[in-house]
């Protein structure tokens, strides 16, 4: 694990590139229906941004930005958005995942279906982002992850791996 101020070039470069990476991921998710991209790809890019921060700045820095409970919450919310949009179509007398029946104030059915596609891609993106960061956090840390405990004991446990 790289300690703080160990490698100034990597840290500085990641600090510069982080904001464009996250913006690009959100762009990929929201523009997925009109250009190459979609929920899976954008979610992977967002997750890779957080993994980049964790590699360059260390786990403590990243855990202060996005906690593990927050990651789990985001991935649960992603699946819930997807299933919720599907179930909401049943309430307005459609089939499951029949977005054309959603009561949006738009004139044509096809536009409403496009909005539905965008909605479920947000859900997919959140889930994929959460799972990517969660798998990385679990694989990289030998024990439970706690940002306060960065003392000697955990360092020793890390070095033994």
């Amino acid at each position: 694990m790289i300690n703080r101020y160990d490698n100034l070039i990597i840290e500085f470069f990641c600090r510069i590139i982080a904001a464009p990476v996250f913006t690009f991921g959100v762009y990929i998710i929201f523009h997925g229906e009109a250009s190459p991209g979609g929920g899976f790809q954008g979610g992977v890019i967002l997750g890779a941004g957080f993994i980049m921060l964790a590699v360059a700045h260390g786990m403590d820095f990243t855990l202060r930005r996005i906690r593990e409970k927050m990651i789990l919450f985001l991935s649960c919310v992603g699946v819930f958005i997807y299933g919720g949009i599907g179930a909401a179509c049943i309430l307005w007398r459609g089939n499951f995942l029949d977005y054309g029946k959603l009561p949006l104030p738009l004139d044509s059915v096809s536009v409403i279906r496009g909005i539905g596609i965008m909605g479920i891609e947000i859900g997919v993106g959140l889930t994929v982002m959460g799972v990517m960061i969660s798998i990385y956090y679990d694989l990289i840390d030998p024990g439970g992850i706690q940002p306060e405990l960065s003392g000697g004991e955990e360092e020793e446990q890390w070095n033994s791996f």
């Binding site: 899976f40 992977v44 799972v131 798998i135």
Partner: peptide, 19 residues
């Protein structure tokens, strides 16, 4: 597209088991 993401998940679970 779905198979790639599932492959990443499978690799993650396999590496967890190896750990």
């Amino acid at each position: 597209l779905t198979a790639i993401v599932v492959g990443v998940s499978v690799t993650g679970v396999a590496l967890a088991l190896i750990i």
